[in-house]
Computed example of a mutant assay.
Amino acid sequence: MDLVAALPAFVVAVVLISASPGPAMALILRRAALRGVAGAVPTVLGLEAGLYVWALCAGAGLAALVAASEAAYLVLRVVGAAVLLYLGVRSWRAAWAARGAGAAAPINPAPAAPSPRSWWRAFGEGALVMLANPKAAAFMIAFYPQFVPAGRPLLATTALLALLQVAVETVLYLGLAAVVGRAGAWFRRPAVRRRLDAVSGTVLVALGLRMAAEGR
């Protein structure tokens, strides 16, 4: 199989994978709704940085070791579940703290650009959610070898394919964030934001519980 000939199928697969619901999508949608597309940028970049690290680990054979190790897989599963539960409970607390705000309370239709501290915190959350997901390791070792032609170096080819995946997903996710961000003034209405925090918190907690309960 020629690498260039395999690229269209690879891009289609990446698009389909990116559109599937999960922790990444939940984080991006909430961040875009409340902070606009600029606020979603660090979350997207953090998720893609974590994805690229897992892709390099897959190319180097490290992801296979993680997936094969019961202890490593369990640790990652517990950490990943804890991260999702933490983010979910934090959203619940935000919804609870805002319960007294009226629907007609003043809103900021144009949120300020994230400060360096909040930018890196959002980036770190995205990266941690991806890196602490053992399913990502299992996925990478099953996905990339299908598109690496025989005789080509696995690590270098995987690194190139992962760059393409990062580029495609970044465009898709930021496009989605831009669409959601256009309705940001509505999402930032106190009553709507309260419900959004409650719903996103429930989704993240459910994903965390599922990750904690699932086996391989």
Results as ranks from 00 to 15, higher is better:
residue 44 V to H: 02
residue 44 V to C: 02
residue 44 V to N: 04
residue 46 G to T: 12
residue 46 G to E: 12
residue 46 G to L: 09
residue 47 L to Q: 08
residue 47 L to Y: 10
residue 47 L to D: 07
residue 50 G to P: 14
residue 50 G to R: 12
residue 50 G to W: 07
residue 50 G to T: 13
residue 52 Y to I: 08
residue 52 Y to C: 09
residue 53 V to G: 13
residue 53 V to S: 12
residue 53 V to I: 15
residue 54 W to S: 05
residue 54 W to F: 08
residue 55 A to M: 10
residue 55 A to Y: 00
residue 56 L to S: 13
residue 58 A to V: 06
residue 58 A to H: 01
residue 58 A to M: 10
residue 59 G to F: 02
residue 60 A to K: 04
residue 60 A to W: 01
residue 60 A to C: 09
residue 61 G to H: 10
residue 61 G to K: 13
residue 63 A to S: 15
residue 64 A to K: 10
residue 64 A to D: 14
residue 65 L to N: 09
residue 65 L to V: 15
residue 66 V to Q: 12
residue 67 A to K: 08
residue 67 A to V: 09
residue 68 A to N: 14
residue 68 A to W: 10
residue 68 A to E: 15
residue 69 S to C: 09
residue 69 S to Y: 10
residue 69 S to D: 12
residue 71 A to V: 15
residue 71 A to W: 14
residue 72 A to R: 11
residue 73 Y to Q: 07
residue 75 V to K: 06
residue 75 V to A: 13
residue 75 V to R: 05
residue 76 L to N: 04
residue 77 R to I: 09
residue 77 R to W: 09
residue 77 R to F: 05
residue 78 V to M: 05
residue 78 V to A: 03
residue 78 V to L: 12
residue 79 V to L: 10
residue 80 G to F: 14
residue 80 G to Q: 11
residue 80 G to E: 08
residue 81 A to N: 03
residue 81 A to I: 10
residue 82 A to W: 08
residue 82 A to G: 05
residue 82 A to K: 07
residue 83 V to S: 02
residue 84 L to Y: 07
residue 84 L to P: 03
residue 86 Y to Q: 07
residue 86 Y to G: 10
residue 86 Y to D: 04
residue 89 V to T: 06
residue 89 V to F: 14
residue 90 R to T: 13
residue 91 S to I: 02
residue 93 R to Y: 02
residue 94 A to D: 12
residue 94 A to R: 15
residue 94 A to L: 13
residue 95 A to T: 04
residue 96 W to F: 13
residue 97 A to Y: 04
residue 98 A to S: 15
residue 98 A to N: 04
residue 99 R to G: 01
residue 99 R to S: 10
residue 99 R to A: 08
residue 101 A to W: 00
residue 101 A to M: 11
residue 101 A to L: 14
residue 102 G to F: 03
residue 102 G to V: 03
residue 103 A to I: 06
residue 103 A to F: 10
residue 103 A to Y: 04
residue 104 A to D: 15
residue 104 A to Q: 09
residue 105 A to W: 01
residue 105 A to Y: 00
residue 105 A to K: 02
residue 106 P to M: 06
residue 106 P to I: 02
residue 107 I to F: 09
residue 108 N to P: 00
residue 109 P to L: 07
residue 109 P to W: 00
residue 110 A to H: 13
residue 110 A to N: 08
residue 110 A to M: 10
residue 110 A to P: 00
residue 110 A to S: 11
residue 114 P to A: 08
residue 115 S to L: 04
residue 115 S to N: 04
residue 117 R to Y: 00
residue 117 R to T: 06
residue 117 R to C: 01
residue 118 S to F: 00
residue 118 S to I: 10
residue 119 W to Y: 14
residue 120 W to T: 14
residue 121 R to E: 11
residue 121 R to M: 12
residue 123 F to Y: 11
residue 124 G to N: 05
residue 124 G to T: 05
residue 124 G to I: 04
residue 125 E to P: 00
residue 125 E to F: 00
residue 125 E to Q: 13
residue 125 E to D: 09
residue 125 E to I: 14
residue 125 E to A: 11
residue 126 G to I: 00
residue 127 A to W: 06
residue 127 A to S: 09
residue 128 L to V: 12
residue 129 V to A: 04
residue 129 V to F: 01
residue 131 L to V: 03
residue 131 L to G: 04
residue 132 A to S: 15
residue 132 A to Y: 00
residue 132 A to T: 11
residue 133 N to F: 08
residue 133 N to K: 03
residue 133 N to Q: 04
residue 135 K to F: 07
residue 135 K to S: 02
residue 135 K to W: 02
residue 135 K to M: 03
